[in-house]
């Protein structure tokens, strides 16, 4: 059961590559693997916490104001997370900068709150938060690895190939778009081949 959930979150319903949610922070933060890892884990924390709380209060939130309420819940956790990061991990704060507060508007959080946590039990919402966060982190790691290697010849801030002049555009915005497009294209191609066989 857990294995299927993990497969769902990471492969069949991957938030970035299949559901196309949370593309903005993906483009911005995938410049290096450490950034991607930090952002992925931070988002997973917020996603899990907000899924839990929303699943608990789903009975009491009136339908007409549910979106502001969900946003407030995720904003609360993002603020708490931000304060903790500023206090105990200032380097990560410097590297991710404004993208930590921007987790609030990451479509994954509101998307999963709306589509899943507000309609499912606590334990299922909790699992969903974990596997979606995991899927987000995994795809961020893939994108960051490609961009960091091609764009600055590094992985985890360590040099990889001596004397290789990196393609700087990959560490910048154009590279972000190209990488996401390419990886999404490959994933989509593999899916269509799989469906054609089935």
């Amino acid at each position: 059961m857990l294995k299927e959930e993990v497969k769902r979150g990471v492969i069949t319903e991957n938030p970035i590559l299949i559901l196309a949610l949370g593309l903005c922070p993906s483009l911005a933060v995938s410049t290096s693997v450490t950034n991607g890892l930090g952002m992925g884990l931070a988002t997973m924390f917020v996603l899990v916490c907000s899924n839990i709380i929303i699943s608990i209060i789903k009975g009491w939130v009136p339908d007409k104001v549910r979106i502001p309420c969900f946003i407030m819940v995720s904003a609360a956790f993002v603020s708490i997370l931000h304060l903790f990061i500023k206090a105990y991990m200032p380097l990560l704060d410097q590297r991710l900068g404004i993208f930590i507060p921007l987790i609030t508007v990451n479509c994954i959080i509101l998307g999963r709150a709306e589509a899943f946590a507000s309609k499912n039990s606590l334990s299922r919402s909790f699992t969903d938060g974990i596997v979606m966060g995991l899927g987000f982190t995994v795809s961020l790691l893939i994108l960051s690895a490609i961009r960091e290697f091609l764009g600055s010849n590094k992985l985890f801030d360590l040099m990889v190939i001596p004397k290789f002049q990196p393609l700087t555009a990959f560490a910048l915005a154009p590279g972000g778009f190209f990488t996401i497009a390419f990886v999404m294209g490959v994933v989509s191609f593999l899916r269509s081949r799989k469906e054609a066989r089935a």
């Binding site: 590094k154 360590l158 990889v160």
Partner: peptide
């Protein structure tokens, strides 16, 4: 940088 991923 003189730190490589092969011998960090």
């Amino acid at each position: 940088s003189n730190k490589y991923i092969w011998y960090p």
